[in-house]
């Protein structure tokens, strides 16, 4: 059920520095219990400006507790400036590794520390380039903004929706925002993007229509069919009739007519034009 390193297990079962610091110099709570993870972290400095006391309280899974625990050991004795340099990767390394789907636990640790330091400095915690809390909320299940997704993608070189989910949970619950996340990633990595405003078919030249249909089939329809072992090929455009060939499982599926009418025609009508009809050629 769980796949923790010995170090994670040790920190999970015997967490260090649990509790609350009385009269802390810096303190912050990050995460949200409603998302399954929350972390409160506070610290106190000694006369030399070094962190002498640090405590945490975590609601979450084993790796969230372990991340917080190991983090408190890492910051003890450091100056605020030194502590501020700790990244989530340092936390993962200190734990001897974390599963991909648990990386967000280390991210939460880093955020708690940075927020507590910001609190000590008397400023709002802000990321260098943009404020993740002021973007547009993309993932409503976990309250993740587009700014945060962009930042995570850039910093960690993430190019897939799954990667984003592993780092910050966005897209991991209902999944409704997955298309949105993909678009954000496409923007970050300057991949080919579609979904410009729907243009009137009449203003498109024949070639533009073909390109548009091809791109919707490539970016939307085929990936959907491929999830279940099917596929589709765009053959021709004859007037308003899009001629396609269904392949793979779709080619032998008794319900391919339903797929053609509802999935293929539905998408093309939504993105290209209401006047389009879809026809299948076999063989």
């Amino acid at each position: 059920m769980w796949n923790y390193t010995e170090k994670v297990m040790d920190h999970f079962l015997n967490p260090r520095n649990v509790g609350e610091v009385i009269n802390p110099d810096g303190e912050a709570t990050v995460g949200n219990i409603s998302c399954g993870d929350a972390l409160k972290l506070g610290f106190k400095l000694d006369e030399n400006g070094k962190i002498s006391e640090v405590k945490f309280k975590t609601f979450g899974c084993g790796s969230a507790i372990a991340s917080s625990s190991v983090l408190t050991e890492m910051v003890k004795g450091k100056t605020v400036e030194e502590a501020a340099k700790i990244t989530n990767k340092d936390i993962v390394d200190a734990l001897g590794g974390l599963g991909e789907e648990k990386i967000h636990c280390s991210v939460m640790g880093m955020e708690a520390l940075q927020s507590a330091i910001a609190n000590y400095r008397g400023v709002e915690y802000r990321h260098e380039d943009e404020d993740e809390h002021h973007g547009r909320v993309v993932c409503h299940c976990f309250g993740v903004t587009d700014a945060k997704i962009r930042k995570i993608a850039k910093e960690n070189g993430i190019k897939t929706v799954e990667g984003v989910t592993n780092y910050c949970k966005a897209g991991g619950a209902c999944g409704r925002c997955k298309d949105d996340i993909l678009e954000i990633l496409q923007g970050v990595w300057k991949l080919e993007s579609r979904n410009e405003e729907q243009l009137e078919l009449s203003v498109l030249t024949f070639t533009q229509k073909v390109i548009k249909i091809q791109s919707i089939i490539d970016s939307d329809i085929r990936p959907m069919l491929e999830q279940d072992g099917g596929s589709i090929e765009f053959i021709d455009l004859r007037g308003d009739t899009v001629v396609v060939r269904l392949k793979g499982r779709c080619a032998v599926c008794p319900s391919s007519g339903v797929t053609l009418r509802n999935t293929v025609e539905g998408k093309l009508r939504e993105y290209v034009s209401q006047d389009l009809k879809v026809e299948e050629i076999r063989g």
Binding site: F12, L13, G62, E101, T165
Partner: peptide, 28 residues
């Protein structure tokens, strides 16, 4: 957290289960 409780229960010899896990992929 159910994940924490389940691990601790297991370490005490008790096997139970939860419908939700904190790993993002299993949220559904």
């Amino acid at each position: 957290s159910s994940e924490t409780l389940l691990v601790k229960l297991d370490l005490n010899g008790i096997a139970a289960s939860s419908g939700s896990a904190c790993g993002a992929a299993e949220m559904e």
